[in-house]
């Protein structure tokens, strides 16, 4: 089976030859190519090469043109802070005036354009056999970078009309950005929406805001969508996630994979939930054990993709642990799993 067939089988809630593995390695491509993280992300050719080398080294069933989340805030005038040993981070929130805000064209933002180019090259070269993941931050979660978390929560909780004005702008931006990635050859879009998680806001508020917005957006994105809560909890909103139109959900290490499997079984696939934070300290044996446990709990019957729980493996996670995860996934993930 190709990686594409394997992943499609999981998303169709059936068992493939083995459990698909998504290693969300973004910055590690810089390590592979011997470049600084900033330099690595400055040229699509670097990212393509990094993705190729990472896949060759570890296997893994997905490739991506995604570089860093702050790129979307850049399109709104934000700055990105680069580090030598961690993900680029959004600088000070760029938006002051929501009333006169207009959705920027993602295709004119240099950082997003580089991701599109990378996606196009990866899709041309590998799209027939490997899923190429696109990434879009939800209109509801992007304001954390656009306004700052505190200011955004104040706006949201005050039921300020400007909140809905911002959602209108972000909605247009998100749909355009996701559609451009699909046009460039992305197989699916990972829709990151941590603010809708019960970890951040109560489910009843999420249902009136973020989850309702997601349902509309997912309908308009011209390709399959995976709903990712970026480490946030999912169980209290499981039914809403199932009804969102997404084909899969990225789940948290804070919740039991057995409970998650039960909640989403026969409905949508689950992606997760190896803890990326403690992963930097795992031994190879721990990595093997964690993979084995995850597979035992969530793989039977299909509908499971093994991955980390946040959507990005930290820079601090070193080669032996990543290799141990990949090896264990191959060893224990073959269907039928015990």
């Amino acid at each position: 089976m190709t990686s594409l067939e394997r992943t499609e089988a999981a998303l169709s809630l059936t068992e493939a030859d083995r459990v698909p593995l998504i290693l969300n390695l973004t910055m590690h491509g810089a390590r592979e190519t011997g470049l600084s993280i900033r330099e690595y992300y400055s040229d699509p050719a670097n990212v393509v090469l990094g993705q190729e080398r990472l896949r060759k080294r570890y296997g893994g069933d997905i490739m991506t043109g995604f570089c860093y989340g702050a790129a979307e805030a850049e399109a709104f005038g934000g700055e990105t802070i680069f580090f030598d040993d961690g993900p680029p981070n959004a600088g000070a929130p760029p938006i002051r005036d929501i009333e006169s805000l207009e959705a920027p064209d993602p295709a004119t933002s240099p950082a997003l354009l580089r991701m599109l180019t990378t996606t196009r090259i990866l899709a041309d070269r590998y799209g027939d056999t490997v899923p190429i993941a696109g990434v879009a931050i939800s209109p509801f979660s992007l304001p954390v970078m656009q306004l700052g978390f505190g200011r955004y929560l104040d706006l949201l909780l005050a039921e300020d009309p400007l909140f809905w004005r911002l959602m209108e702008v972000n909605r247009e931006f998100c749909i355009t950005w996701a559609s451009l990635q699909i046009e460039a050859g992305a197989t699916a879009i990972v829709y990151f929406d941590p603010v809708s998680s019960p970890t951040i806001i109560p489910p009843e508020l999420a249902r009136k805001t973020g989850l309702a917005i997601a349902k509309e957006i997912i309908r308009e994105i011209p390709g399959p969508v995976a709903y990712h809560l970026a480490s946030g909890r999912a169980l209290p909103i499981a039914k809403d996630l199932i009804g969102s139109g997404a084909v899969a959900v990225g789940v948290s290490a804070l919740e039991s994979l057995a409970d998650l499997k039960e909640a989403f079984k026969g409905e949508i696939a689950i992606i997760g939930n190896l803890d990326g934070v403690s992963m930097h300290r795992w031994s190879m044996d721990t990595a093997t054990q964690k993979v084995r446990e995850a597979i035992e709990m969530a793989a039977p019957g299909g509908g499971f993709i093994l991955s980390d729980n946040h959507g990005e493996i930290p820079w601090q996670v070193q080669d032996p642990v990543i290799r141990a995860i990949a090896d264990a996934a191959d060893l224990y993930g073959r269907y039928p799993v015990p």
């Binding site: 929560l153 909780l157 019960p198 806001i201 109560p202 909890r233 209290p236 804070l254 919740e255």
Partner: peptide, 11 residues
């Protein structure tokens, strides 16, 4: 414990 949200803590 996952029984309240961050926004509730904040408010």
């Amino acid at each position: 414990d996952g029984e309240a949200s961050l926004s509730q803590v904040y408010v």
